[in-house]
C-alpha cells in the first residue's frame, strides 16, 4: 500500500461554495476531479495539501451543451469518456473525441475529466517516481532538488505536457473559463499553458477551470489526432499531434494548424504554416508541414526515447494530415 498523506476533505455542492472554499485557503488546497492524476501523485509524495476539495458535487461543472452559434461548451468536470463518445463532439470535433478516447484506459477515461486533463501535472522520468526513489536520486529541479537531469545546465524545468486533449483543443481554437472569488476570465487554451514544467499552466491557486468552449466548426473543417505511445493502453503519449485544416470549396487551404504535445512543458503550435495557404493540401504541401514540425519539435529525455521521437515527428505529422476527418455540422 502507498499511503496517502492525511488531509481535510471538502465537498462543495455548488460553484459558489467551491470558489469560496478555494478562496479561503488557495495555497493549501488542491482540487480533486477524477483523482487519476492527483491521487497517484499524492501517493508518490509529490503533493501533501492541507485540504482536498472534491468537484464531483458541483453541478455547474457537468454536462456538454450547445452554444447558440453551433459550438459546444463542455463542463470542466465532464468525464473524458463522455467527451469521447458524445455524438456532437464526435461529429464536429473528431480529433478531440479521438484524443479523449485514447487517454490511458477505459476506467481512467470514466474517472478523469477534461478539466483535469487540461490541468494534468507535467511528467518526467525523474519526477513521476516514489518518494523513496526521488530521495535516492536527491530530488530534481521540479521537486526537492537543484538539478535538472534532463537538461543538466538548465534552470527551467522541462517536464512534459503529457495530456491528450490540449493539442486538439488548441487546434480548434477552444477557450477555457477560469473562475475564482476574484472573478471570471476566459483564455484561449493555448494561453492556458506556461513554459515552465514546475507549473505549466496559468491557473491561479484560487481558480477552477469551469468550462471549455469550442467555437462552431468552420465549414469544411477537417481535423485529426495522432498519439504515439509504447503501449496501446495505460500509457501517456510520447508524441501527440493534432491537426486542423479549413479548406475552401476548391480544396485549397484557408487555415492549417498543427499542434504537437509531449515535448516540453508547452504544447507547441507549429509555426510558418501560412505557406500552405491557397493551395491544395498536396503530398508536397504535407511534406513541407512535416519538415517544419520536425525542425521545430525537439523531444527531450524527460519521457525517454528522444532520438526516435525526433525521427518520427515528420511521419506522424504526415499521417495526421493524411487522416484529416471532416467535421459534420449536422451531427
Amino acid at each position: 500500500m502507498l499511503p496517502l498523506p492525511a488531509f481535510e476533505w471538502v465537498s462543495p455542492g455548488s460553484l459558489d461554495e467551491l470558489v469560496r472554499a478555494l478562496g479561503e485557503s488557495p495555497g493549501e488546497s488542491l482540487l480533486l476531479a477524477g483523482g487519476t492524476d492527483l491521487l497517484p501523485n499524492m501517493k508518490h509524495g509529490l503533493f501533501a495539501p492541507r485540504r482536498v476539495i472534491g468537484l464531483r458535487r458541483v453541478r455547474e461543472l457537468r454536462g456538454i451543451a450547445e452554444t447558440p452559434a453551433g459550438g459546444l461548451v463542455i463542463g470542466g468536470g465532464a468525464p473524458l469518456d463522455r467527451v469521447a463518445t458524445d455524438p456532437r463532439v464526435m461529429a464536429r470535433y473528431p480529433a478531440l473525441a479521438r484524443a479523449a478516447g485514447l487517454v490511458a484506459s477505459p476506467q481512467i477515461r470514466r474517472m478523469g475529466t477534461i478539466g483535469g486533463n487540461l490541468c494534468l501535472e507535467t511528467r518526467c522520468v525523474y519526477y513521476n517516481q516514489t518518494a523513496f526513489w526521488r530521495g535516492a536520486l536527491g530530488g530534481c529541479l521540479k521537486k526537492d532538488g537543484p538539478t535538472c537531469f534532463v537538461v543538466p545546465q538548465g534552470r527551467r524545468c522541462v517536464a512534459a505536457m503529457s495530456a491528450d486533449t490540449p493539442a486538439p483543443l488548441i487546434a480548434y481554437g477552444a477557450s477555457v473559463e477560469l473562475v475564482s472569488v476574484r472573478g471570471t476570465r476566459t483564455l484561449p487554451v493555448a494561453k492556458l499553458f506556461a513554459g515552465d514544467g514546475v507549473k505549466n499552466n496559468v491557473r491561479a491557486a484560487d481558480e477552477v477551470l469551469t468550462k471549455v468552449e469550442l467555437p462552431p466548426p468552420a465549414e469544411r473543417l477537417f481535423s485529426a489526432y495522432e498519439k504515439v505511445r509504447s503501449r496501446a493502453a495505460i500509457d501517456f503519449p510520447l508524441l501527440s499531434i493534432a491537426a486542423a485544416a479549413v479548406l475552401d470549396a476548391g480544396g485549397h487551404v484557408v487555415e492549417l494548424t498543427v499542434v504537437v504535445g509531449a515535448l516540453g512543458a508547452l504544447p507547441r503550435v507549429v509555426r510558418g504554416l501560412e505557406i500552405t495557404r491557397a493551395a491544395p493540401l498536396s503530398r508536397e504541401a504535407i511534406d513541407l508541414v512535416a519538415e517544419a514540425a520536425h525542425t521545430q519539435c525537439n523531444p527531450l529525455s524527460s519521457l525517454g526515447a528522444e532520438d526516435w521521437r525526433k525521427d518520427i515527428v515528420a511521419p506522424v505529422v504526415r499521417r495526421a494530415l493524411a487522416g484529416l476527418a471532416p467535421s459534420r455540422i449536422a451531427g
Partner: peptide
C-alpha cells in the same frame, strides 16, 4: 499496483468501471 496502473481493483461506481485504489 495501488496507483491506477493495473486494473486489479476495478469496481463499478454508479455503474461505471473505476479504479478503487485511486478513488477516495
Amino acid at each position: 499496483c495501488d496507483k491506477g496502473d493495473c486494473g486489479a481493483c476495478t469496481v463499478l461506481l454508479d455503474g461505471e468501471p473505476v479504479l478503487a485504489c485511486i478513488t477516495l
